[in-house]
């Protein structure tokens, strides 16, 4: 029996895409292990990491601080609107703090980090590859993975938890600004209800661990896409787009898995 030609080519296309995807995943995993193995140099020469920390961490501060503030302010407003119907507007502090510390802090900070710093890392490494700087390093017996990729990877892993914590703090402050200063919720109940509801181990530590996972995921994707980019202008732009799309999807998927593990059976 002969299948129609178009159907066959369609199935072939799907199969090709799947095999290609699995292949890329394998290469990415091998690359990730390679980066970890070769990060000894970058940790010994910590100046390289500090330089990258400036670009990924310090320069991301403005977007993190401003968005954290506004997310907290919106949470405060919306939370107040709903809670005051039940006469429990003093619980707005709990609502703002729990949603920020558990979910929004790590996730939104990681999404912003992926589009602010992840794309920059990909574009930089991709362009270095396109202009054959990486090949030139190899010629001079300087390992480009140890010299270029590993410092960027570690800078992202280090700065992500800090950025998430700053985001959460700014959000709590934003919620305070809107609900206590502008609307006039009692200041004491804002802080005390928050403190009695937010648990150090369950909420803050789990949020911290989440942001560490996101930091590893985003920077690993960013450096791999940059290193793997086709050495053309088009290739680099495609790789940058893929970094943002893939890491956003990975962040959200990973967030669901981590939340399911961390908060299952907890009120």
């Amino acid at each position: 029996m002969l299948l129609p030609r178009r159907l066959v080519s369609g199935i072939q296309h799907i199969g090709h895409r799947v095999i290609e995807g699995v292949w890329r995943l394998g290469v990415a995993s091998r690359f990730f292990i390679l980066v970890l193995l070769k990060s000894g140099t970058s940790l010994r020469r910590f100046n390289l990491v500090i330089r990258e920390l400036y670009f990924t961490g310090v320069l991301s501060l403005i977007i993190i601080v401003v968005s954290g503030l506004f997310v907290g302010m919106v949470l405060g407003l919306q939370g107040y609107e709903t809670l005051q119907k039940y006469g429990s507007e003093s619980a707005v502090g709990t609502l703002v703090a729990l949603s920020l510390v558990r979910e929004l802090g790590p996730v939104v900070a990681a999404l912003l980090f992926a589009s602010r710093a992840g794309s920059a890392i990909t574009a930089e490494i991709g362009l270095m590859k396109a202009t054959e700087q990486l090949a030139a390093m190899g010629m001079m017996a300087v390992d480009p993975i140890a010299r270029v990729v590993a410092p960027r990877f570690w800078s992202g892993v280090i700065s992500m938890p800090f950025l998430a914590a700053i985001f959460s703090v700014m959000g709590v402050f934003g919620g305070y600004l809107v609900t206590v200063v502008f609307i006039g919720v009692d200041e004491g109940s804002y802080w005390s209800q928050m403190q009695s509801a937010v648990d150090f181990r369950f909420d803050i530590m789990n949020g911290f661990i989440k942001s560490c996972y996101f930091g590893v995921a985003v920077t690993a994707i960013a450096v791999f896409e940059g290193y793997d980019a086709p050495p053309t202008a088009e290739g680099v732009s495609g790789a940058t787009t893929r970094t943002v799309v893939t890491s956003s999807l990975v962040i959200l998927g990973l967030d669901f898995i981590l939340t399911a593990f961390m908060f299952r059976g907890v009120s």
Partner: peptide
């Protein structure tokens, strides 16, 4: 930047958390 991050974590654990 690192000092800000550490301070943020401390605020979270002392002021926001219990």
């Amino acid at each position: 930047f690192v000092v800000m991050g550490v301070i943020a974590l401390m605020i979270l654990s002392l002021k926001v958390g219990n």
